[in-house]
Simulated assay, not measured.
Amino acid sequence: MSTHKTLSTALAAALALGLVQQAQAADSAKEKCYGIAKAGQNDCANLNGTHSCAGQATTNNAPEEWRYVPKGSCKADGGMTTEEARAKLKK
């Protein structure tokens, strides 16, 4: 019985690892784009640390809020890189 549990656990871990690798590959085709998120539509924590969850942006296009966009499309959408957003927040 112990061998069966060990094999089941190993199989489950291998399958989970495959899913994680697929998700990471999909994320590599995207980039964070600051200043384009609408209220309640940000993807995760903001730069200034006032929240740490997706969907908590309170204003449209705040420079500290971000969304994932396809790589290379951020500037065309009017967004900023992480460095540009940090510089804007320091002003």
Rank of each mutant, 00 (worst) to 15 (best):
T50Y: 13
G79Y: 00
G49P: 09
E64M: 02
K5A: 15
H51P: 05
S52T: 14
G79M: 00
C53R: 13
K30H: 10
C44Q: 08
N60F: 08
A29E: 14
Q24R: 14
S28H: 09
N61E: 14
Q56W: 01
G18Y: 02
V20M: 02
A13M: 15
Q24A: 15
A39W: 03
V69M: 14
A16H: 07
Q21Y: 01
K91Y: 10
N60T: 02
K90V: 01
S2R: 11
A25Q: 04
L89F: 05
L89V: 03
K30Y: 13
T81W: 03
A23P: 06
T9E: 05
T50D: 12
K91L: 08
P63I: 00
S28T: 09
A29H: 05
Q22G: 05
T3W: 01
L17S: 13
S73P: 12
E31R: 04
K88L: 10
A13W: 09
Q41S: 05
S2Y: 14
N60H: 04
S28G: 11
G35E: 04
P63L: 04
N61Q: 07
T59H: 12
E83L: 13
A85R: 01
A13G: 06
V69N: 00
V69S: 11
S2G: 15
A14H: 03
I36E: 10
G78P: 10
L17H: 09
A10Q: 15
A13V: 13
T6N: 04
C33Y: 09
A39V: 07
Q22R: 14
M80E: 07
P70W: 03
G18S: 08
C74T: 10
M80V: 06
I36F: 05
A23L: 10
T3E: 15
E31L: 04
A39R: 00
A37Y: 00
A85H: 04
R86C: 08
A57W: 03
A39K: 02
V69F: 00
G49A: 01
G40L: 12
K71F: 02
A29S: 06
A54N: 07
P70G: 11
A57P: 02
D43E: 02
Q24E: 14
T59V: 07
A54K: 13
G78V: 04
A39M: 09
K91F: 05
A13R: 07
